[in-house]
Structure formats: structure tokens, C-alpha cells
């Protein structure tokens, strides 16, 4: 399967985990990587170009930090412009129904500032990440796309604490280990997506993708 990765990060230069994730993805064959803020610094998205891109891929990954319980603004602009009437939904000039993106898999790869405990019904945010991203999921559903659970890194943004020297030695080691682990999962998952070696059924119904990862990998063998 062809994987299309959209990155939406307004401060890519200073990003701790998103940058290594994006760069790792760039090194994987069969994954097309698009840095939205780099392509459209004035937020003026080329609709035709992006629609053609979507058509050419099977899995769409939206990589971004969680901003105001949602995505950075360019991703909303992308949604508004690219998933347009007469393409992703609605009718064409002849009056036939169009659903150009039907059947494609789509999900978010998100980094969150708060720890995991905050993203629970009884936690500080009162909802988990998949719930927070519901407006996106509903839009994709409207276009007959298939949403997978988000791939999440909690407690991101702590490398700044490492740089400041505020974190203790033990903490630092722990954070770096988490990051390495996350990157490893990320690469493995992108490759599995590409090679169609992921249990898509289970990935659609899960709440968070990475926690289930080892059980999600399937060997398709000669398929």
C-alpha cells in the first residue's frame, strides 16, 4: 500500500519528537512525506495538487502536535480546501455521486504535552485523544474513509526540560528511552502499513494505536 504522510507543525525547527519522526519516515521507501507548512507557508493550499496526491495513495497519516485539543490550523485549511465538494463528497457536473476517497485509511500521529493519565474520561482533559479528534474522524467518515486509532506520544516536549537541565539524570534517561522506543514503533508501523502487514480491523476499533502495536502486526506471507 502507498502511504502518504502529512506533517503539520508550525515550529518544525524546534520540534523534539516530530522532526526525528518525519525524518525517519523520509527514509522509508513507499512513504510520501509532505511538510504542509513548508509547501504552503502562506496557508494557500494547492487544491488540485493535494487532491491528486490523495488519489495516488491508500493510507493517509496526519502527523502533528495536539494544539488546543485539535490540529494546527493548516490541517483544518487542508480539510476545508482539499476534501471539497464534487471530489470527496457530493455530486459531479452530471449529477452522479462522487466519493473519490472512499475506502482509504486515515489516522493521526499526535504528540501531546500532558501525560497519558490526563487523556481519560476521569482525567484532567476529560476525554481521550480519539474523542478529541472526533470532528476530523466524522469528516473522514462523511467521505467514506476508514479511520484508524491515533498513534500517540504522551508527555512530549520534555526535551526542553532536558536542555534546561531541570530534569534529573534519571528522568532524562527515561525520556530519551521513551523517545527511542516511540521512534522504533513509528518506523515499524509505517513499514507494516506499506507492506499491508497490519490488522486493520483491530486498528480501526482501538483507542490508541501504538499500545496495541505488537499484536497488530500480521504476517501476510504470500498475500
Amino acid at each position: 500500500m502507498k502511504v502518504l504522510l502529512y506533517l503539520a507543525h508550525p515550529n518544525f525547527d524546534r520540534s523534539g519528537i516530530n522532526r526525528p519522526m518525519f525524518e525517519a519516515a523520509r527514509g522509508i521507501d513507499g512513504v510520501t512525506c509532505v511538510d504542509l507548512y513548508a509547501c504552503y507557508p502562506t496557508l494557500e493550499i494547492d487544491r488540485d495538487c493535494e487532491q491528486a496526491r490523495l488519489l495516488a495513495h491508500d493510507v493517509i497519516v496526519l502527523q502533528h502536535p495536539l494544539h488546543w485539543y485539535s490540529a494546527p490550523s493548516i490541517l483544518k485549511e487542508w480539510l476545508d480546501q482539499v476534501l471539497g465538494y464534487g471530489f470527496a463528497y457530493g455530486q459531479d457536473a452530471k449529477g452522479d455521486v462522487v466519493l473519490a476517497l472512499a475506502g482509504k485509511y486515515i489516522f493521526h500521529a499526535v504528540s501531546c504535552g500532558s501525560p497519558k493519565e490526563a487523556y481519560r474520561a476521569d482525567g484532567a482533559n476529560g476525554a481521550d485523544v480519539r474523542q478529541l479528534l472526533l470532528p476530523f474522524e466524522k469528516s473522514f467518515e462523511f467521505c467514506h474513509m476508514r479511520s484508524l486509532a491515533p498513534f500517540v506520544l504522551f508527555s512530549a516536549g520534555l526535551p526542553m526540560a532536558i536542555d534546561d537541565g531541570n530534569a534529573g539524570q534519571r528522568e532524562r534517561v527515561e525520556i530519551l528511552r521513551t523517545y527511542r522506543h516511540h521512534l522504533q514503533d513509528w518506523k515499524q508501523m509505517l513499514i507494516a502499513l506499506r507492506d499491508h502487514e497490519l490488522d486493520f480491523e483491530q486498528a480501526q476499533s482501538a483507542r490508541i494505536l501504538n499500545e496495541l502495536l505488537p499484536t497488530l502486526f500480521v504476517q501476510t506471507g504470500d498475500l
Binding site: D80, Y85, G86, Y89, G90, Q91, G95, P135, K138, S139, F142
Partner: peptide, 16 residues
């Protein structure tokens, strides 16, 4: 004009 096609009055009116 385009808005008259389909079930939405205005094409810039997104679903939802």
C-alpha cells in the same frame, strides 16, 4: 450557482 446542486445551498457550506 454550484450551491444549487446537491443537497447544500452553498458549496462553501461544509458538511457537519
Amino acid at each position: 450557482d454550484m450551491g444549487e446542486q446537491g443537497w447544500m445551498k452553498d458549496p462553501d457550506q461544509k458538511p457537519g
